[in-house]
Write a protein that binds this DNA or RNA. Structure first.
Lengths: 175, 175
DNA sequence: AAATTACGTCAATAGTACTGACATAATTCC
DNA sequence: GGAATTATGTCAGTACTATTGACGTAATTT
């Protein structure tokens, strides 16, 4: 069962006492695992994967962003994006428009079909978040947003909060 | 640039006004992306990937768990686990011990080497969490833990909080 | 005119996952 | 005791997402 030169089994659990915040590390893993599992069902119906979801999300969030900008947000390579983007364009979820100033650029926009799919994918995720915030007020929500934002690399924080809700006056942050 | 039958580009951004909590959806994506990027550097030195990290983590967290239990926690298939687990055993990070009651079972334990690697991988993640909680007190921390736990599928919450810190009396939840 | 930039594409490879099938040993059920 | 089930391991084939490196084209900048 154990090979001759194998080390001895350690029988005690690693814990927060080792100076590491395992509680939150683990919670973060489970939370994200289930968070991403929601849209996976829907994506399977289209023959799409998570990569398609991410592209669709950001094209809807920042319509008109260029290919280079998208690569920067997703932190993947051009070659990785190519297949996924091509499929989304071929299936009429995303359209490319020649850049107005620089004609080398391709501005990416969602179609009505792409907008609808992005919303359908986000709906179960939003529902999960709403349920998790059920008994929370604006204070708790702010705490969670601050925490998540602080988890992002400082130099990349510019990527977030680019799209503030264009609320007319609805106090929709409250619960 | 646009194919003949292509839909028209939508030029307005999708926002929280569409009834979806895009703010937190996006924050969660960025936060997790950077959270997992920390250990990736270290793993590369060993020729390991994220799958190895996850296995190593849970074997350290719940020493003696069986293969079946590990599959259940990770929510992957036996075949997916096989290669990764074999590599970790071959490199003497994990050892298998025959189950005491049921000899068909293989209890998984970390070696000293496996314990050390698990700690090394968790260290930068824990540092990131500590930094994100810098100005937070016990209340904020509790809010965040509650939120993350509520994001997990209810029927799977049994998987978490199995390993409470065996603190003697240190009030280590406070900052 | 030359260099750079933005984008697209081809080829090869890696890591992680999947389904389906089959084998072995140990336990449980009848 | 024999049959069924369980825990684990393994083989084969496939899919998705990602990588590096190289090359081509069109447009812009120097």
């Amino acid at each position: 069962m154990t090979s001759p030169a194998a080390g001895k089994p350690i029988r005690t659990a690693i814990t927060d006492d080792d100076g590491i915040d395992f509680a939150i590390i683990e919670l973060f893993f489970f939370a994200y695992r289930d968070f991403t599992s929601d849209p996976d069902q829907i994506l399977a119906d289209y023959g799409f994967g998570r990569a398609h979801h991410r592209v669709l999300h950001f094209v809807n969030r920042r319509p008109g962003l260029t290919v280079a900008e998208l690569l920067d947000v997703l932190k993947i390579t051009k070659q990785s994006l190519a297949r996924v983007l091509k499929q989304l364009i071929d299936t009429d979820h995303i359209v490319q428009v020649q850049g107005p100033r620089d004609r080398r650029q391709r501005e990416l926009y969602p179609t009505a079909k792409g907008r609808a799919l992005a919303l359908a994918l986000a709906r179960p995720q939003s529902r999960r978040i709403r349920a998790a915030l059920e008994d929370s007020g604006a204070t708790e929500r702010a705490t969670i947003e601050r925490f998540l934002e602080a988890m992002v690399n400082p130099e990349l924080r510019a990527q977030i909060d680019i799209v503030p809700a264009q609320t007319s006056g609805k106090n929709h942050g409250d619960h």
